[in-house]
Amino acid sequence: MKALVTGGAGFIGSWVVDRLLRDGHNVWVLDNLTNGTERNISTFMNDSKFNGFVKGDIQDNHIVEQLFNNDINVCYHLAASINVQDSIDDPKTTFNNDVIGTFNVLEQCRKHGVKMVFMSTCMVYDKATGAEGISEMSPIKPASPYAGSKIAGENMVLSYYYAYGMPTVVIRPFNTYGPRQKATGEGGVVSIFTSKAFRGDPLHIYGSGEQTRDLLYVEDCARFVVAAGLSEGVNGQIINAGLGQDITINELALKICGDPSLIKHIEHIHPQSEIPKLLCNPSKAKKLLNWEPRVSLDDGLLKTKDWMIEQLKRM
């Protein structure tokens, strides 16, 4: 298979590239390096199946069109503005990237007969209300321009399935963490907390810390993403992926740092965007893709910590 991964130099994208190469597929990567880094894909450069990295933007139609001239079979569309707080402060940038950029890629998929896997997010949902967790039929609530833009992108992607018969699938991974994730503002809570714990810095938690997250290890997420592109049985579907267990941010912080005195609660910058409870019901992914997470939260946290230690040794 010939696969294009937009956002392929990013955190999740680079793991998707890794999975595709391990499975013997040919891969191209498009990334403007706003969130990603060439360091994430440097180890793939000598792989005969890695056909190239193009530094470019999904809003640049010329660059996108050139990549699709490589007889691509499937496009894993992960390129996006990903920060919820930034989307509230600057909604235009998020809309341009996540809606207009997605439209540009969709059009090339339609013209060339390419399947699109659209990376959405669990942040489109309203809070979980029961022990069974959030299914694909649960209510959505665009509490930020990021969530609103992702919902708009989802609807465009699904419209191409219904209007043109183009193979598409929308995937909604829950909070993904692991090696290569940034430990800065646009990173994830696990990487930020782990980095601060190493330095002995306070772990700042917005609000009460009783909000929960369902944390999915990145290699499990990558397997899910790749599988969605290979399966014809999921075309036209929306599919969740998560661990199926949630944890409060307070509990997560203590699990990572082990020192309650390092945990500090601060006022939320944009409390209106906070989702009180995120718990995934991944049963549809198991049914349609035979996919289940393999890495427990404790093991995933250890893998992330070990990776960060290796990075510090190289500095």
Rank of each mutant, 00 (worst) to 15 (best):
I238Q: 07
P179K: 04
K196C: 08
G185I: 14
R223W: 14
R180Q: 13
G187Y: 12
F224G: 06
N235H: 11
D201E: 15
A227L: 09
I238D: 01
V226Y: 04
Q237N: 11
S191P: 03
I256S: 01
G242C: 10
A183P: 06
A197G: 06
G242T: 08
A241L: 08
S231G: 09
T194V: 09
I249G: 05
G236H: 08
C221L: 11
K182A: 13
S261H: 11
T212R: 02
N175D: 09
A197K: 06
A241Q: 05
D220A: 05
N250E: 01
A228Y: 11
V225N: 02
D220C: 07
E186I: 12
E232S: 15
T212E: 05
A222G: 07
A253D: 04
Y217I: 09
G242V: 00
A222R: 04
E251F: 10
V234S: 02
I205E: 01
F224I: 02
Q245T: 13
G242K: 04
E232G: 15
G207E: 01
H204T: 12
R223Q: 15
L262V: 11
G207C: 02
L254W: 09
T248G: 05
G242Y: 06
S261L: 11
I256M: 03
G187F: 13
L243M: 15
S191R: 06
L252T: 05
D201I: 06
A241H: 00
I238R: 10
G233D: 14
C257T: 07
F198I: 09
V189S: 00
R213V: 08
D201W: 12
F198A: 04
A253W: 05
I249K: 03
T248N: 08
Y206N: 06
I256K: 02
G209R: 06
F224P: 03
E219A: 13
V218L: 10
G229T: 08
S231C: 13
E186Q: 12
H204I: 13
I256H: 00
Q245M: 14
P202I: 07
I239Q: 04
Q237M: 15
T248C: 08
G187D: 08
K182G: 12
F198R: 02
L252W: 10
F224S: 04
G233L: 13
N175K: 09
I256R: 00
G207A: 07
P179W: 06
H204L: 15
G244Q: 03
N250L: 06
L243D: 03
L230K: 02
N240P: 01
G209H: 10
G244P: 00
L262S: 09
T194A: 10
N240D: 01
N175C: 13
V225R: 03
A183F: 14
C257H: 03
K255Y: 11
V190Q: 00
N240A: 03
D259E: 14
A253H: 05
